[in-house]
Computed example of a mutant assay.
Amino acid sequence: MKKKVPFEPSKPPVIEGLSPTVYWNPESFKEKFLRKTRKNPVVPIGCLATVAALTYGLYSFHRGNSQHAQLMMCTRIAAQGFTVTAILLALAVTATKS
């Protein structure tokens, strides 16, 4: 009895509904980052706002201004929420287009 092989290792697998593409010129990290930033500029803005609030909050905490540090930590959480919401909205828009 001959055992059936699920796929031929020398050929790519055929998946229904998927047409594989071959990239002759793969993107660098910088090119991919710029392309995705142009596509959805709100996410990097949210990330920068999160980092800025965290940095300034830690600086305020180090200086002993705990009230301002607490305000910056709340701001950081709001900026993180903004960023996550932007990512989810971008995913939803992408899903509805396809």
Rank of each mutant, 00 (worst) to 15 (best):
K2T: 00
K2R: 14
V5P: 01
P6K: 08
P6C: 06
F7E: 00
F7C: 05
F7K: 12
E8S: 11
S10Q: 07
S10I: 01
P12R: 08
P12M: 10
P13T: 04
V14R: 13
V14M: 06
I15W: 07
I15K: 10
E16Q: 15
G17T: 02
L18Y: 15
S19Q: 14
S19G: 08
P26V: 03
P26T: 06
P26G: 10
E27R: 12
F29G: 02
K30R: 12
K32P: 03
F33T: 00
F33L: 10
L34H: 05
R35N: 05
R35P: 00
R38M: 03
K39V: 03
N40W: 09
V42T: 15
V42P: 05
V43W: 01
P44H: 08
G46M: 04
C47H: 07
C47W: 09
L48K: 02
V51C: 08
V51Q: 00
A52I: 03
A52M: 10
A52G: 00
T55D: 04
Y56M: 13
G57M: 10
L58R: 08
Y59K: 11
F61K: 05
N65Y: 07
Q67D: 13
H68A: 14
A69W: 00
Q70Y: 07
M73P: 09
M73L: 14
T75I: 03
I77N: 03
A78M: 00
A78C: 01
Q80K: 10
G81N: 00
V84I: 11
A86H: 06
I87Y: 09
I87T: 09
I87K: 07
I87L: 14
L89H: 12
A90V: 10
A95I: 13
T96L: 13
